[in-house]
Design a protein around this nucleic acid. Structure first.
Length: 426
RNA sequence: GGGGAAAUACUCAAGCGGUCAACGAGGACAGACUGUAAAUCUGUUGGCUACGCCUUCGUAGGUUCGAAUCCUGCUUUCCCCA
């Protein structure tokens, strides 16, 4: 199956320039995607772009991953309703390094002919003077053309700085540069990048007369129309320090049936037959959550490691069991395994003395652990019957004593089904 | 530069002298039902030493027994005219 066909059945194509498919069919083709260093870690949203590059490489083409050291200094107005704050050079540097490191994990940079390559547009912009830029680049693209872009048009009312206005030219020049120096003929990206990409192909056509192509991916949304890649506690990042592997695993496991079907196509490399098989199995017995489990497993292993996956799976199984079985499971857990499992679950430490004296449940939830932020919230939660201690529901009058401490060292608090908190006693 | 309008909790949005911790909607969280799904129903959504008290309606003052509501200065935003 060729590159474009692969993307197509996975639902990863939003738009494509005429001739793109032929270009990929004709020869080994180089293509690039840019990553903005707005954070020091990629989020799951960026994972779509990473997967595209992976498919590209697997189809025998050559991927370029561009880190936007220069474009990051300008700020892409696409999809933004407000002017962005500029990041300082130090932050950008730090972010670039983080992103580069993550990209290296996914792509093969060392397989000869179609090895992936990492480039940073700062390298070709740092030497360029403003005058050079407006003479060599600006001269080829008309204001009228730039104004017609959605990213600009939508901001004409509310205002936009010259800096952001010029963004499309800067990105356009990237494409031109890669085209002339690296023979890169295609730019890939999210659908919000279409305007910027087309400015690039236009620039290439006018400056060097070459043909250049574009493929964009659809913006991933959840079935209910909300943004993908966020959880209650914020963005889901690939960096385990920002999003623990446990949380990361849970994020995928919590996908709705509908979403899971889409995600497994987009975020895993599993072949079509296997995916169809999984979907069928899932539909036959949806309560087994096969899709979600496979999805979460595959991605967690690829982004983190097999060990991280196993730990997350282990933790999930123990945390989500119910009844006596769950309590026994907790009690039988050796201390070291416990540590590993609950890494990533919020926790705090309480002196043994205090527990021996007995703590009211409200004090425990709020004052000693800060699991909940106010007594009022704690009372509310208790009234809602949503608080459990070691998997047992508790009410407002309950007092926590040493008899609640499991294995001499911890207490497991829970709000609702999915929010856990570990109290360590020592 | 001149004139007008507006700023309310996570967001939108009521309220225009007491009955306002502030209608309503969305969101979020929780409970029931389930499959850690969806849909649905229900509850909660400022704080506290809690049938009471305290702090909140851009900001600083003022009028009043009493203000989110009236007045004044300031800040910000939007609109109209130049």
């Amino acid at each position: 199956m060729n590159f474009i066909e692969e993307l197509r059945w996975r639902g990863m194509i939003h738009d494509m320039m005429p001739g793109t498919e032929e270009q990929f069919a004709k020869e080994k083709t180089a293509a690039y995607i840019g990553f903005d260093p707005t954070s020091d870690s990629l989020g799951v949203g960026n994972l779509v772009q990473v997967m595209i590059l992976l498919h590209l490489q697997q189809a025998g083409h050559k991927p370029f991953a561009l880190v936007g050291g220069a474009t990051g200094m300008v700020g892409d107005p696409s999809g933004k309703s407000d002017e962005r704050n500029l990041l300082d050079a130090e932050t950008l540097q730090h972010n670039q390094a983080g992103i580069e490191k993550q990209l290296r994990k996914f792509l093969n940079f060392d397989n000869g002919e179609n090895a992936a390559e990492m480039v940073n547009n700062y390298d070709w912009f740092k030497e360029m003077s403003f005058l050079d830029f407006i003479r060599d680049v600006g001269k080829h693209i008309s204001i009228n053309y730039m104004l017609a872009k959605d990213s600009v048009k939508s901001r004409l009312e509310t205002g936009m700085s010259f800096t952001e206005f010029s963004y499309q030219l800067v990105q356009g020049y990237d494409f031109y540069w890669l085209n002339t120096h690296k023979n890169c003929k295609v730019q890939l990206g999210g659908s919000d990048q279409w305007g910027n990409i087309v400015t690039g192909t236009e620039l290439i056509r006018r400056k060097s007369g070459n043909e250049a192509y574009a493929v964009t991916t659809p913006l991933i949304k959840k079935a209910d129309g909300t943004k993908f890649g966020k959880s209650a506690s914020g963005n889901i990042f690939l960096d385990p320090k920002k999003t623990s592997p446990y949380k990361f695993y849970q994020f995928w496991l919590n996908a709705t049936d509908e979403d899971a079907e889409n995600y497994i196509k987009i975020f895993t490399l599993k072949p079509k037959t296997e995916i169809n098989e999984l979907i069928k199995e899932h539909q036959q017995s949806p309560h087994l959550r096969i899709l979600q489990k496979e999805l979460a497993k595959d991605i967690t292993i690829r982004v983190h490691s097999v060990e991280d996956y196993e730990a997350a799976l282990n933790a999930s199984e123990i945390l989500f069991k119910t009844g006596q079985e769950a309590i026994d499971g907790l009690k039988n857990l050796p201390a070291d395994l416990f540590e590993a499992i609950f890494e990533g679950v919020p926790q705090s430490t309480v002196p043994k003395k205090e527990v021996e004296n007995g703590i009211s449940i409200i004090d425990l939830l709020v004052t000693t652990t800060h699991f909940l932020s106010s007594n009022g919230e704690a009372r509310r939660a208790l009234k809602e019957n949503s608080i459990s201690v070691n998997k047992n529901k508790v009410n407002e009058e309950d007092t926590i004593t040493f008899s609640h401490v499991i294995n001499d060292s911890y207490i497991l608090l829970q709000r609702g089904k999915k929010n856990y908190f570990v109290v360590k006693v020592n």
